[in-house]
Amino acid sequence: MKKKRWFVALSIMVATGFCLSFISVHQAAAEDVFKVKGNVKGVSGKAKTISLSVKGKGSMVFKFNDKTRFINAKSARDMKKGEAAVVKYKSAGPDMLAVSITKAIAKMPGGVSVIKTPEVAALLKKGPKAGNYALIDARPAKRYKAGHIPTAISIPVTNLKKGGKGLLPAKGKTLIFYCGGPT
């Protein structure tokens, strides 16, 4: 008799467990994942929090954890203030938990190649004339004034958009553009 009761209890437990696991799987599948794009306003590694300014929504604060995937970035450390990022998130209790955080990397326009530090340094040694290059700082003028790469000239991207091609040096030399990072 005792044995039978045990068996009943056990089978009820197994059945419940099975049902529960089914429910949880079902819930996970139904859990909504949202996606937003915005500019990084700040990152705290300590609080595992990233804040994004999103058009039309304002500041959004996301938690991240060990399961959060970082794309184009090794960790939260690589997410820098002011850069664009895409966050996929779901709600976890009162929090918004980031499922993935993608650092937006600007695509190179057609026909434009990337130049690395040693090549830039080698050109700088020759100087703009002998090296036949123009190094152009695309950041706001304030940044350029505070500190720029030697031999660079300042043409902020906003000026170039408004002012047109007349702002660029004459054709026939290599144009090298740079700004505040790999975006």
């Binding site: 130049i115 530090t117 830039v120 950041r139 553009f177 990072g181 790999p182």
Partner: peptide, 13 residues
Amino acid sequence: GDVKVYSNGVPGW
């Protein structure tokens, strides 16, 4: 014609 981007920029420099 010859247009390049130094993508590492100021931080890389």
